[in-house]
Amino acid sequence: MARLHFASRLRHVAPPGTTHVSASTLREALDGVFAHHAALRSYVVDEQARLRKHVTIFVDGRRIDATELDIVIGADADIYVMQALSGG
């Protein structure tokens, strides 16, 4: 299962610690978390399901582009959802 880690700033809306989700794409993994943490969704993506401009996601150590939410991920992918250095 993919492992998702969320920035500490999101702790009030995100699952505590690492959460595990079964998903084949990055978007499925995120939606899997949003299904149980609905308030988290609007912090990560906008109402058009686009990654927010100043949110950064790493998949297995690679920073993904905002257009890559539908990329295929490995069964045990390591996903970090973080705040960009821009946007503060």
Binding site: R9, L10, R52
Partner: peptide
């Protein structure tokens, strides 16, 4: 929020606390 978009909060206790 600089990273996480627009949010709205309301206080029903005169500003003692706010809830999203």
């Amino acid at each position: 929020l600089g990273h996480f978009g627009p949010k709205l909060h309301r206080s029903d206790d005169g500003g003692k606390s706010f809830a999203e």
